[in-house]
Simulated scan of single mutants.
Amino acid sequence: MSPPVRAVILDLGNVLAFHDNALLFRRLGARAGLDAEEAARRLSGAGWTAANRGLLGPEGIRRDVCEALGVDVPMAEFTALWNCHFTLHDAVLPHVERLEGQVKRLLLSNTNVLHVAWLKPRLPVLERFDHLVLSCETGHVKPEPAIYEEALRHAGCAPDEAAFFDDLPEYVAAANTLGIRGHLFTTADAFDAQLRALGL
Rank of each mutant, 00 (worst) to 15 (best):
L88K: 14
G101E: 15
E77C: 01
L99T: 14
V103P: 04
L107V: 02
P74F: 00
L88A: 10
F86M: 07
H85D: 14
M75E: 06
A76E: 15
N83V: 14
K104S: 09
M75Y: 12
A80M: 07
N112T: 09
R105E: 04
F86W: 12
R98L: 01
L106P: 10
E100R: 15
A91F: 02
H89W: 09
R98K: 14
C84V: 13
F78N: 02
V113R: 05
T79P: 00
L99W: 07
H89Q: 11
Q102M: 05
M75C: 02
P94W: 06
L106T: 09
L93H: 08
H89K: 06
E97F: 04
A80W: 01
E100K: 14
A80G: 09
T87F: 05
L93A: 02
L107N: 04
S109I: 07
L81S: 05
E97T: 11
V103F: 03
M75A: 11
S109A: 15
H95D: 11
V113M: 04
R105M: 09
D90H: 12
N110T: 13
L107W: 00
A76V: 03
E100P: 00
L93I: 11
L106M: 12
L107K: 03
G101A: 10
E77D: 14
T79G: 05
E100L: 05
L81I: 13
N112S: 13
A91Q: 09
N110V: 13
V103T: 13
T87L: 06
F78V: 02
N110A: 08
P74T: 01
L81A: 12
L99Q: 08
V73I: 15
Q102Y: 06
L93P: 01
V96Y: 01
E97Q: 14
G101C: 13
V113F: 02
V103E: 04
F78Y: 01
V92A: 13
P74D: 03
M75T: 05
L106Y: 13
N112E: 13
L107T: 03
L88W: 10
K104F: 01
H95R: 13
A76N: 11
E100I: 01
T79D: 15
W82I: 14
V113H: 03
A76P: 08
A91T: 12
V103M: 08
E100H: 14
H95W: 12
L107A: 05
L93E: 04
D90I: 03
R105Y: 01
A91W: 09
A80D: 11
T87V: 07
L108D: 12
V113K: 03
T87M: 05
L107P: 04
P94I: 07
K104N: 05
E97V: 06
